[in-house]
Computed example of a mutant assay.
Amino acid sequence: MFQVNLGFSRLPVKIGKVLVVIGLYPFLEINLSKLKQNIETLQKKCSQWMLKPVAVTKGFCADSKITDLLYDSGIQTFADSNISNLIKLIDRYGHKAQYQLIRLPMKEEIDVILENQIIPMVSQIEILNLFNQKAKQLHARSSVILAIETGDGREGFLPEELLNNIDQVVSFNDLTIVGIGTSLACLSGVLPQITTLEKLNSLRNQLRIFLHNPHLFISVGGTTFFSLWEEYSQPPPVGQIRCGEAFLFGSDISRKRNLNWLQQGAFHIEAEIVEIKSKLPDSTDRGFDAFGRACKISSENNYPRKRALVAVGLQDIDDTQLFFEDRNVTIIGATSNYLVLDCEESQHDYRIGDLVRFQAGYGTVLRAFLSPYIQKRYIE
């Protein structure tokens, strides 16, 4: 929805010896009550489906106000692709919870992973060997999840590759293989099928015998996998489902759908209009924009057209993951510092200093938490 600015509030900040006036905008609004409700609903659904939810925290930099909601609700396992976020979580909750590294580990991270009892996903025999060697040196066992490739073309052992090297895997005496894990709809848009779980279950049963571990579990990610439990009454047994999008946005972006049992709209970006003018872009000689993308201009629109420049850009947000309630306004695109709106068809009289408000999707929330230029505002 659009919202008109009712004043020009500013925050003075001292930088060195200079008093600088810094704007309160743009900001990211985080509705904690919606997130709490989604987390509680997710817990109930997973309990019905005999799934253990693993909270993926990378999309919001493991922000403590959100992770506290998860922890207080009874979430016992956190997953992230950045060790710094996992260390932050360990410092806050200690080892009352478990922590998974869901980005394949780099060699130089192995000591930190072992020292902090983080469970990594691993897809290379060489890395398994290094974990085994380091664990032996530290007189500590290392728990790992074997990443399995199921069609997305990203990380993971091919099942036949793993089975062909099973003797080597079994020989790693200082490793405990606690589970096998997979991810879909991350790179290639491949959606999970019931056959995906059937193949994982078959592989898990074989590995249980080879590894003498009847407790070996299956971990799937992400939110896209919920569709299988919605559609089938009894899918093959799975231990964990790793998700972030579900409780954050109540959506499944891989299928362009909202999950009707969860709430949407927990995140909004609010930013200020800093220019309103009618513009006629020059179309005589066109190259690429500042990010190397091909530039296009429609010849069907009647130019000049009214454009609004909003003081937020690609360093802060993803312009494809902003949703504006004024259907007569089009997002033209964004540069580092500006979001450009076409307001020609709008019935609203936008002016300098007006605030515009967008519902924020995953890409925007991710960048907003990473950006030091975006204020954070929490509402209960």
Rank of each mutant, 00 (worst) to 15 (best):
R242M: 09
G287N: 08
K277M: 12
P236R: 00
G287L: 10
A271H: 02
I253W: 11
F288T: 09
I276N: 04
K279F: 06
D282H: 09
G250W: 01
I273H: 04
G292I: 02
G265H: 04
G265V: 03
L259G: 07
C243L: 14
K279L: 11
P237C: 07
L259C: 08
A290R: 09
I253H: 13
F249R: 07
H268T: 11
S251I: 00
G292F: 00
Q234H: 15
D289I: 02
I269C: 06
T284F: 08
R242D: 07
W261M: 12
F247Q: 04
Q234N: 15
K256V: 10
Q264F: 08
F291W: 13
A290V: 11
G287E: 06
P237N: 11
Q264N: 13
G265D: 03
D289N: 11
L262I: 05
L248I: 03
R242Y: 10
S254I: 01
I253G: 08
G292K: 04
E272M: 15
R255V: 01
S283E: 08
E245K: 06
G287F: 10
D282A: 09
S233E: 12
V274H: 04
R257A: 09
I253R: 13
S283Y: 10
D285M: 10
L280Q: 13
I269W: 01
F249L: 11
E270H: 08
E270L: 09
H268A: 08
P236H: 03
D282P: 02
F247I: 04
P281D: 01
K279D: 00
A266H: 09
F267R: 05
G244D: 00
S278D: 09
K279P: 03
G287C: 07
G250A: 02
I276R: 04
N260W: 10
G250I: 02
Q240D: 14
R293T: 13
P236A: 11
G239E: 00
I269S: 04
E245S: 14
D252P: 05
F267G: 03
T284N: 10
S278E: 12
R293W: 14
R286S: 08
P236F: 09
A246Y: 03
L262D: 09
I241R: 02
L262M: 08
A290P: 05
S254A: 15
R255E: 02
A290I: 12
F288G: 03
E275R: 15
L262C: 04
S233T: 11
R293N: 15
P236Q: 05
I253S: 13
S233M: 06
E272I: 14
F247W: 14
K256M: 10
Q263E: 13
I253L: 14
D289W: 00
A290W: 07
I241Q: 01
R257D: 00
S251Y: 02
H268Y: 11
I273E: 01
W261K: 11
F288H: 10
V238F: 05
N260Q: 14
A271D: 01
R257M: 11
D285I: 09
Q264R: 14
R242V: 11
G250K: 02
P237Q: 13
D282Q: 10
D282L: 09
A266F: 06
F291G: 07
S283Q: 12
Q234C: 12
G292E: 01
D282T: 07
L259H: 10
